[in-house]
């Protein structure tokens, strides 16, 4: 098994140690060891069904792992509901299908968590939300409903919504897979800017350009296992594992 730790002087913020995850008798994650340092950008690659989504969904406990330890910012995930909610506050997640709340305006989508979870008063939360919309470059859409926006705009709202809880780690699950080609870039640009601000990010994506330019490390998964980890340069030019080579041959 490949055990990966970040450089020793970097403080890890997310750690997985020997994590297994089963769906019934099907093993979706097998002895996963991974630690992500503060400010690091990790891109997770792998063929369909290899367990990429399951991996990041375990980190904010949308899925419950069956064995091993997962900690986020020192908090271990367990059946303790308060620990789970604290971890969810520390992590933001962006979904392939956006999952915006269709009955709320863009502004209300973003202010919901700050107001409900952090008990921020409305005007303060709205100020925060407008700042975030500015950052994802769509402040003029604040009063619209999600259904009135294009896919790219919706995904940027979803990013703003995740940022509104001021998370320490952002996780992306194929954020551009449901988008038309001309909208992919606007979302990737926002993600790249976010990485530039020093945000810790774990991204599942098929955008190899993004992986090459932005990732600090690439994690390659297959059949529930982490097969290979390395810098983008190492990964794309000189992979060690035969399974990685085969994957790269197919997609490049």
């Amino acid at each position: 098994m490949t055990t990966v730790t970040a450089d020793s002087d970097d403080r890890p913020i997310v750690t997985l140690e020997g994590v297994d995850k089963f769906f019934g008798s099907f093993c979706a994650l097998r002895d996963i060891h991974l630690s992500v340092a503060v400010g690091e950008v990790v891109v997770v690659l792998g063929p369909s069904g290899s367990g990429k989504s399951t991996l990041i969904r375990c980190i904010n406990r949308l899925e419950r792992h069956d064995r091993g330890r997962i900690t986020v910012d020192g908090i271990e995930l367990s059946n303790d509901v308060r620990a789970v909610r604290q971890v969810r506050r520390l992590t933001g997640m962006v979904f392939q299908q956006f999952n915006l709340f269709p009955h709320l305006t863009v502004l209300d989508n973003i202010t919901l968590a700050p107001r409900q979870v952090r008990r921020m008063p409305r005007h303060e939360a709205e100020e925060l939300a407008m700042g975030l919309l500015e950052r994802v470059k769509i402040p003029e859409q604040a009063r619209k409903y999600p259904g009135q926006l294009s896919g790219g705009q919706q995904q940027r709202v979803a990013i703003a919504r995740s940022l509104a809880t001021e998370p320490k780690v952002m996780m992306f699950d194929e954020p551009t897979s449901a988008l038309d080609p001309e909208m992919i870039k606007e979302v990737l640009d926002v993600m790249q800017e976010l990485a530039g601000t020093g945000m810790t990010m774990i991204c599942v994506t098929h955008e190899m350009g993004f992986a090459r330019e932005v990732a600090g490390r690439v994690v390659f998964m297959d059949e529930g296992e982490i097969v290979e980890v390395g810098t983008p340069h190492h990964f794309f030019t000189n992979p060690t594992e035969p399974r990685t080579r085969r994957f790269l041959e197919q997609i490049l």
Partner: peptide, 15 residues
């Protein structure tokens, strides 16, 4: 109500 709605709400830390 799609499952994604609930997951998104959980993910931002709603009780």
């Amino acid at each position: 109500v799609p499952r994604g709605q609930v997951e998104a709400a959980w993910a931002v830390g709603l009780s």
